[in-house]
Design a protein around this nucleic acid. Structure first.
Lengths: 115, 115
DNA sequence: TCCAATACATAAGATTTTTATGTATTATTG
DNA sequence: CAATAATACATAAAAATCTTATGTATTGGA
């Protein structure tokens, strides 16, 4: 399965982190599988995150101190809830603003005739 | 020097090809260095393409048959003009539409509260 | 004359993502 | 009730892309 079902895979490079951080900013607490489903739902299936990309990304953000994790057992199955740390929260707003600004710049660049 | 001066470098992954193709679609014929300057100009210095990223990308697009090259001597210095091939032109429109659509999807995903 | 800008190029290393697995639990459906 | 799909985690090899660091050479300007 592709990271992205509808779009070419190359397009999604660099977008995974912002997507994760934005979801955790809005939802406070999410586990990995939930994130994949939420993204699929919010994009009408256009963007599908692969687990091979997601879990390493979550581990990296945790190692950097941006996220922390709370483990819970649902029956016999473990579930790892991720949330922004205090220091992560302040950093995330800047990161997301930058990303948003960047997207706007790219769009202007691709439509110079309309500017 | 960064690929991008203002933005974090991670952000620009995957955007180089669309940027190149879009410029060549509008300008018919451009050489590498010209592309770096045009992008800098159009984004007010926010996006700077490194040569280490650009030249391999141009060579790859040429190898794929999307671009073709015309070499010219300006004095003693060579200049390589790139342009879309016939088959490249039809493919590029689809690619750029896809990229544009993708950017819209990402923006909606990052602003679910406004949808 | 020297430095900055122009103009090409490549190669090592880092990072990210794909692709392919692997394990195990729980829910559904024929 | 057995098989399959969905849930839920994980990792590792390979591919792709980009950064960073070089390298060469010409041309323009201070």
């Amino acid at each position: 399965m592709y990271y992205c079902v509808m779009y070419s895979k190359e397009l999604l490079k660099g977008t995974l982190q912002p997507i994760i951080l934005n979801l955790l900013k809005d939802n406070k607490r999410m586990y990995g599988y939930e994130i994949t489903q939420k993204v699929k739902e919010l994009t009408n299936g256009k963007i599908g995150i692969t687990e091979g990309a997601l879990y390493p990304a979550l581990h990296k953000l945790e190692a950097e101190g941006v996220l922390r994790v709370e483990e819970e057992f649902i029956g016999k199955r473990i579930r790892k809830y991720y949330m922004l740390t205090k220091s992560g929260t302040s950093a995330v707003n800047e990161k997301l603003n930058e990303f948003s600004d960047f997207l706007t710049t790219i769009q202007q660049l691709l439509k110079p005739s309309l500017s």
